[in-house]
Design a protein around this nucleic acid. Structure first.
Lengths: 146, 146
DNA sequence: CTTGTTGCAAATCGTTTGCAGGACA
DNA sequence: TGTCCTGCAAACGATTTGCAACAAG
């Protein structure tokens, strides 16, 4: 929810750590590992994928779920739903706000440049809503899939 | 996916029934009941809500799930995801394509006029995607909730 | 030291599936 | 009548929770 300073990969970690301490969340191994898994990726990961990418020996799925929820609450992470039954998560640092195209067949995920739905967002604000966010996903068949 | 003739509430049922027969789906009591539940509503319903609205004595959740999937396949129904763990469904008759605002606090749902994200959709098409659809939901706090 | 955090196991919730009986065209 | 559809029960996958042991500030 807060401001999201423009951070280069270099400083992503310091930024994350400062957000943690600002919110009185302890800096633990599981949390660091999850941040690493998310930061090393170009597209949103689900819990299973995060689990596989985490180098921590004993790391429980429950911990990942709890951690992601906590990160979401403080705005460190963005929850994304592709409508396939599992939630995805993306680090919410600087990068401009964006959305995705998902191939209905091969499930490839591509980022779209910019957001560009400001007009609808204005309508929502005009309806009296505050702290407005949105979720937008495109689905289609990519070139390879037909 | 097919064309969606402009239907007034009056004729919604005849329309639905014709879609059923066009797709060789039998007109059964559970299916009629589910269509009634959906047509009598202004906002998308989840399976639990449909279940409660259905006057049929013995109607199983499994039947509702199967029916909704079948309806979705023939374009009679639109699946909508509010990211809260359960899928919603909306009758897909005439009404112009639209999206929703959901209050983060009281969960109130409002329709938004028109869609208006054609520019992003063009970008997606330009990337080579075919049969492009999208899912867009806004979240915020409505007037009453602060 | 004190509270927040974790791992483990069990519970829960939404959704799907197999199957035998029943209803529509 | 033959096939599609349904109810029931059981299976499933994603996510949550209780609790006692543990670790960060």
């Amino acid at each position: 929810m807060g401001s999201r300073p423009n951070i280069k990969n270099r400083g992503v970690f310091q930024y994350c750590e400062s957000v943690l301490s600002n919110n009185r969340l302890k800096k633990t191994k599981p949390r660091i590992a999850i941040l690493e898994a998310l930061s090393g990726n170009h597209c949103p990961l689900n819990v299973e994928e995060i689990y596989r990418k985490c180098p921590v020996k004993t790391l429980d799925l429950a911990t990942i779920y709890r951690t992601l929820r906590a990160f979401e609450d403080i705005g460190l992470v963005q929850r994304i739903d592709f409508g396939d039954g599992s939630a995805r998560f993306e680090l919410r640092t600087d990068d401009h706000h964006h959305h995705h195209v998902i191939c209905r067949s091969c499930k490839k995920v591509e980022k779209l440049p910019d957001c560009g739905i400001s007009s609808l967002e204005k309508t929502v604000t005009r309806l009296g809503y505050q702290s407005v966010t949105h979720s937008l996903e495109f689905f289609g068949l990519c070139r390879k899939c037909k």
